[in-house]
Design a protein around this nucleic acid. Structure first.
Lengths: 241, 241
DNA sequence: CGTACAAGTGAGGTCTGACAACTACGGGAG
DNA sequence: CTCCCGTAGTTGTCAGACCTCACTTGTACG
């Protein structure tokens, strides 16, 4: 039985980062297919995924070439991770300090974002995330009570994303995040150990499940100096210029 | 002759946004192949691209389903666009005010980022971008002189990206952008018509060409209140947990 | 001798048909 | 009524062939 395309993709990615440099040409598709013991279709699928990820570049009649490889998923903002997972991915020492876990009536703004009736009940979680023992972010997460009540055990600490996926049995897809910058107010300044008015990076997002239900409202404020956040930008394939 | 996969992908995307709602199931791959007069391989390639873009979700044995479709490329930070193109994409009234276009010796920091020798010469462009007649961003772009001198005509105004692609004949791939937040200094406050100390969104990026040459250093400061910037976040396909 | 055109080579792009693996549904046995 | 298993429909993978494109090489002609 042939291995899955996703397996080949991961192995290929590993091989590329280990043995190839930007500009190098990869072996031809039939050669790769033989090397990985899969069909050419599977190799092509893996290569296409790598191409849309910006790792390689395929040119008709010439070959497949390695691009400048971005060190992915280290403080990345464009993959769907919560703050805790983001800090973990960047290999920083992680600490989480839970400020509150309450079931409350949602403030108007959150209720709107989650498509709940006014004052609908949500599970509200407020945490401070420590990276290398210094406060790096403050995160407010709100989960509709209808979703949170599915959980087998109540939220304690750790990643809210993992809680939703593992405890509530949800499939998360991602969503649009609004990124902005604000000055720190008095409370945040105290909690994050910065001066009042210092600029913070603000990330607001509504997470949706596969069935298009809003399952998580998330508002995060990062201290930019203590955590390096990156996004991978690449050209849309096939967009005519 | 069958049409190209990229064509099918664009048409499929259009059809989905026009005629399908989140959660809907698409016709089966053989049906789509017949409908678009291409082979199943081509349809699958298009569907895979849409899946990695987060538009659809394929489930083995069940079908292909439409996700919540993100309104793409409107103030998006995760696609590789300059400020001017970003403002254009968001359908805002665009204005560009060029502050300076100079060939200078690169400051140490910029020289490092561009892998130039100390005090290597760069074409430095500083602009203010107006959205709806209000200053929305200030952008500093530095292009190595070796690159800029390829241009058929010198830079006047408009998108620096278009200048690099059209005038210098480069193929741009994208790169990693560092996103941060800073307080406005006195000069920026005056230029952007904000108060000194007001939080600005800071985006720093080095753009690389296909041959892995650093071709553009870009530093942008956005006024968050005047321009809504979003990034599309989605789960990495196939990441086991 | 040099240039221009033609054929050759090898790469990715597409097509075809088949089979494997998986999911959901329904009918029949217990 | 419940459980098991077969079946239909879908995506995943395979194999082989041909097409299109970019570059290389060889050759004929000026």
């Amino acid at each position: 039985m042939g291995r899955a395309a996703i397996t080949v993709r991961v192995e290929l990615m590993q091989t590329i980062t280990d043995h190839y440099r930007p500009g190098d040409r990869l072996p031809s598709e039939p050669e790769l297919a033989a090397a990985y013991s899969v069909s050419r279709s599977t190799i092509r699928e893996a290569l296409q995924a790598l191409e849309t990820d910006g790792v390689v570049r395929r040119i008709h009649g010439l070959g497949t070439f390695v691009n400048q490889v971005a060190p992915r998923v280290a403080g990345a903002l464009d993959v769907d991770l919560g703050v805790t997972e983001t800090v973990e991915a960047a290999n920083q020492r992680l600490g989480v300090q839970v400020l509150r876990v309450d079931e409350i009536a949602a403030p108007r703004e959150i209720a709107e974002r989650l498509s709940l009736p006014p004052a609908g009940r949500v599970l509200l979680i407020e945490r401070i995330i420590l990276a290398n023992d210094r406060p790096a972010a403050i995160a407010v997460d709100a989960i509709p009570q209808a979703i949170a009540s599915r959980a087998t055990t109540s939220y304690e600490d750790g990643s809210v994303y993992r809680f939703l996926e593992r405890q509530c049995g949800l499939v998360l897809l991602g969503g649009l995040a609004h990124v902005s910058a604000v000055g720190s107010d008095k409370r945040m300044a105290r909690l994050l150990d910065v001066r009042e008015g210092d600029a913070l990076l603000r990330l607001e997002q509504v997470e949706r499940s596969a069935s298009d239900d809003a399952v998580l409202y998330s508002l995060e404020h990062f201290v930019p100096a203590r955590f390096d956040l990156t996004i991978s930008r690449h050209r849309q394939a096939g967009v005519t210029r």
